[in-house]
């Protein structure tokens, strides 16, 4: 069981990293807006995972993307920071008993709560990412534009991904 979930996670990591590096990194709407959809993996971490596990997975996800995008440490830093707060953010939107295990999603949390969760998590990650990327900080307006519009674009990508995963889940059952 453990091995199966490890391999599945590893495949998710490789898949998301490839998608990000090969295709999404090339998108640059209006010169500023790039979707950072790879954090979908962190969004989906279930509540039974250990904090150590969450941190390590996120760190390596970021590091692999950095290696292929020529940005040493940038994605690793922002993904690790997000991973630190992910369990807390889940609890903001859904009240859990000690033994409840959920995978964050529109079915397990409720549509509105999940949307809020996605927005907050994306905003946090993108703010850190773009601040780190723009150091030394110069133009705050451009920075804010990058954060806001990239957050929206990533958010839309995630809504589509959630829609696909829910409808394929319905078909299976």
């Amino acid at each position: 069981m453990e091995t199966v979930s490890f391999i599945r996670r590893l495949l998710t990591l490789i898949g998301l990293a490839l998608l990000q590096v090969l295709f999404l990194n090339r998108i640059a709407l209006f010169g500023y807006v790039t979707p950072l959809f790879y954090i979908w993996m962190i969004v989906r971490f279930d509540t039974s995972m250990t904090r150590t596990g969450i941190l390590l997975w996120a760190f390596f996800l970021g590091l692999i993307i950095d290696m292929f995008s020529g940005t040493p440490g940038l994605n690793a830093a922002s993904a690790t920071l997000l991973a630190m707060f992910q369990p807390g953010i889940v609890k903001l939107f859904v009240s859990l008993d000690r033994h409840d295990v959920i995978v964050p999603g529109s079915v397990s949390m409720g549509g509105r709560q999940f949307a809020g969760y996605l927005l907050l998590i994306t905003l946090l990650h993108h703010t850190v990412y773009f601040i780190l990327r723009s150091i030394p900080l110069g133009d705050w307006t451009v920075l804010a534009l990058k954060v806001v519009f990239s957050t929206l674009l990533t958010f839309i990508f995630m809504l589509v991904a959630e829609h696909v995963s829910v409808s394929s889940g319905l078909k299976r059952s």
Partner: peptide, 20 residues
């Protein structure tokens, strides 16, 4: 211990990012 791990990983990333 995860807090120490967090600090370790974050430091490592920031060293990669700015220490170069």
């Amino acid at each position: 211990s995860y807090i120490f791990l967090f600090i370790l990983l974050e430091t490592l990333s920031l060293v990669l990012l700015f220490g170069f």
